[in-house]
Nucleic acid binder design. Structure first.
Lengths: 129, 129
DNA sequence: CTGGCCCTTCCCAATATGGGAAGGTCAAGG
DNA sequence: CCTTGACCTTCCCATATTGGGAAGGGCCAG
């Protein structure tokens, strides 16, 4: 199958498939006319990548997970370690976002939101520290 | 004062100050030798930008907030609207990260994490949907 | 054989920040 | 007076991810 069908079946855009090939994440076989040719196995790999990306894994992590997935003799410990490190990073980022939202919500609560120019949000942004 | 001191006093790197000037977020006066020259007012503006960035405002929002801050006749309604829209975006992003972390944590909990190759994390990433 | 769709490569865009090279300027001290 | 080191300048490149679009070639049905 050509790149368009592989894209449709994997949920990864053709643009991204070419990109993943360019950065060495996946390989590609070419037919006589230069078109990329894919099989079921490639579609499965692309789906794997998409799911990992959906979980927020950066491509470098995806590269490692993919190597582990394709290694019949891998140890699950390595996968678990990678996953838990990523969970911690995700949760820390989520906390930081919630803290930002909370402080901004607090500032907004004290801004009357009418035609007057006073606004504690701007006052806070202008603080000296 | 030169860019180095303005950077140290505002907490914005010299690199970023030049960038903010390049994209028209701030202006700059040059002395005879071509060096950028800043005053107290500029340091306050840079600090304003840094605080807004710390709260996660993208630069385009910062541009609008800055205009509102510098406008003596602004209405606080606009600031509040911008802030609350941003709060909603932050919270939605935080939720999405927490959902990712939860599902990954769930998968990791069922991965024994030893020398055996079986691992539900990889199995899930390889699923067909 | 022609129209329309698919494929190719290559360039550019956005987000924000930083590294580093090559060269100009200025102040202090030998 | 000249050297040295710290500071400044501009310009290019890099990160990570995805997409838009142009220019050109391939392939099949009507």
């Amino acid at each position: 199958m050509n790149i368009g069908e592989a894209a449709a079946r994997s949920g990864v855009s053709a643009k991204m498939i070419r990109h993943y090939e360019a950065i060495g994440l996946i390989g590609a076989v070419r037919s006589a006319n230069g078109y990329r040719v894919y099989g079921e196995r490639d579609v499965a790999v692309l789906r794997f990548i998409r799911h990992a990306r959906d979980l927020g894994f950066p491509l470098e992590d995806v590269r490692r997970l993919l190597a582990l997935w394709q290694d019949r003799n891998r140890a699950s410990a390595e996968v678990k370690r990678l996953a838990l490190a990523h969970v911690a990073a995700l949760e820390s980022k989520a906390d930081s976002l919630r803290r930002m939202a909370a402080s901004l919500r607090h500032l907004a609560a004290h801004c009357h939101g009418d035609d007057r120019p006073d606004c504690p949000i701007l006052d806070d942004l202008a603080r000296k520290d």
